[in-house]
Amino acid sequence: MKNRLKVLRAERDWSQQDLANALGVSRQSVNAIETGRYDPSLPLAFRIADVFGLAIEDIFQREA
């Protein structure tokens, strides 16, 4: 699964730690999701969408 976390973070000038704090998870989690090594659960994906004020499908996309 692809995601736009890095781009969305950069647009807001957030570090991985900033996003991790906003989500209530570890920085390792943000890094693993961002680099595609870990796909978040649906509840966490919803939290990520809420933090960015976007729909889940605007952040996560299927691999082409």
Partner: peptide
């Protein structure tokens, strides 16, 4: 553990 990635 509340962090699902660390738990995984």
């Amino acid at each position: 553990e509340q962090d699902e990635y660390l738990r995984h």
